[in-house]
Write a protein that binds this DNA or RNA. Structure first.
Ligand SMILES: [Mn+2]
Ligand SMILES: [Mn+2]
Ligand SMILES: [Mn+2]
Ligand SMILES: [Mn+2]
Lengths: 160, 160
DNA sequence: TTAAAAATGTAGCCTTGGCAACATATTTGA
DNA sequence: TCAAATATGTTGCCAAGGCTACATTTTTAA
């Protein structure tokens, strides 16, 4: 007998292709999880780096300067600082400047070192400093220790 | 006369340092805005690339396969696909597979080309393929056209 | 044919990180 | 000294992207 096409929510759709055993690309999923993890850590890293920089420049990091330098509103800065405080990276009191905990300082040092390597690597590769500056701010968070070493090797060979 | 320290919300804090004219680092803010923009476009790029890949492999992209390959739940896939649909990158119907619009296909091509260059560049630099695979998935979104050209130059010189 | 399995849809919840608007505190300068 | 300017705090809103739990549809296989 001829089967009448069922009219359901899907309407008159072509049937899905039979799948049987489709190979699961577990590697790919792992890469995306790795990127998501990097993005979770990114804000903290950029902030502690910036706070360390402002302290080096002015002796303290203030909300208004963070807002200007990060390009966001002061409300966003306040919310982020609260998270950094919660996570033990900064200390701050109302209407006072923000400072780093030892853990925050350590993270800032590591991040600045990595950031500098990435920036100088891009420059050594022939990228204009202004472009290298833009790209490094994002790339730095996705560079594994192994790749960072490769960048350093390249810098040693191509030191001007 | 000696001024008694006011007891306000801030408690007894050291006064903030006088700031006068602090130089505004406008460049730095621009870099962070640039990164935020890249992150806004990232999900769409990764998804259309993956959808194109699944279509090339199986003739269609299904929710369950996207979930496995992106490493997220099928609920997340559904929500994201709704956004891609809203933005004109995919077409889909309930309980049916997902396909790319011409715009989605174009984006997928561009992203795959860029992804491949980044991956091969890292490998050429001496990074192990497994690590290059992980790093490329994040780095690709933070590479400007100028830096991409620098990567290609390097690849031409170091083709094995 | 049909029950079970698999896939898909949907609702509600969460965190992050944006914003504007308004409230309060501090600093500055006349 | 004190009013104005500046800085900070807070509230409430939003979108993106995660999740679980449960509902529904489709596909598979007995
Ligand atoms: Mn950064
Ligand atoms: Mn990123
Ligand atoms: Mn990616
Ligand atoms: Mn990719």
């Amino acid at each position: 007998m001829k089967k009448i096409e069922t009219l359901t929510a899907s309407g008159s759709g072509e049937p899905l292709k039979s799948r049987r055993k489709v190979p699961l690309d577990l590697d790919r999923a792992a890469a995306f999880e790795y990127v998501r993890q990097a993005h979770q850590e990114e804000t903290a890293q950029d902030y502690v780096e910036m706070i360390a920089d402002l302290i080096a420049q002015h002796g303290e990091a203030r909300v208004v300067d963070l807002a200007k330098n990060m390009g966001v509103s002061h409300a966003t800065i306040n919310k982020t600082i609260a998270r950094l405080n919660r996570d033990g990276l900064v200390v701050n009191r109302p209407y006072r400047a923000i400072f780093l905990t030892p853990e925050g300082e350590s993270m800032a040092r590591d991040c600045k070192a990595r950031h500098d390597i990435v920036f100088r690597f891009l420059c050594a590769l022939g990228v204009k400093p202004a472009t290298a500056h833009l790209d490094a701010e994002g790339v730095e968070h996705h560079i594994s220790p192994e790749t960072l070493k490769a960048f350093e090797r390249f810098l040693k060979k191509h030191k001007c």
